[in-house]
Amino acid sequence: MTSTHLIRSQLLNLATTRMPVAFGAVIVLLATVNGVAVVVGTDMDGSKTFISSGADQQSLVAFAANALMLAALFGATAAAREYAHNTAIATYLITPRRPRALLAQLTAIGAAGAVLGLLGTACTVVAVAATLPFTDYGFLMSATDVLRVLAVAAFAGASGAVLGAALGTLVRNTGGAVSATVVALVIAPPVVVQLVSEAARWVPMALATAASGIPGETGTATSLVGIAAWALLPALLAVWAVQRRDVV
């Protein structure tokens, strides 16, 4: 069987459960929250400065950080449940060269994460654009800016999904994998920043925000490399682990 077969099989594996629908529902919910915020939300001073310029609107619809988190949870769940349901057995029976099977799985989950990021951003842009007419402001983002937040969200989604899947492969327990993902992306970074303040710009959420074009200390290219590194390090660890550990 070819790598294409393995990747397509993993994509079908993801598509034939209710998980994509559940995560899609979360995306719609987040977009709805943004739309409601546009209509009823205000800044501290009661104004609507947060939607008053193209840059402000870009900051509002920049979904990369959400995509990273959401896709990481998706990836962690998707990978860990393969062990929880023992379906990893069939995967490694068909492809006993385990790194190859894992790479196919990470590729498929990464692709799904990219789609989640794209959909999340698209839904948010649509929600914001649809609700702006209820305010004094129009849609001020340029097409280039929209494409940029879409592309960065797709990249962040793919990276987050790989990161989560790698943690899921390492932990092999769905609850544990989700917890590990939350610790890695939400709980640990502030603690690390407390200890080493220079690390603030390198935590995943900060990198995702910077990559979306929100002004910060880190450039877009550097931010993208940083996000990729956050995904690749656990992925390499997972490849090493599947070679060394028994499947069951």
Partner: peptide, 15 residues
């Protein structure tokens, strides 16, 4: 997952 889809996933991987 349905039983049929379980087999479809395996069939695709195995070519």
């Amino acid at each position: 997952r349905s039983g049929r889809n379980h087999l479809r996933v395996l069939a695709l991987a195995a070519g």
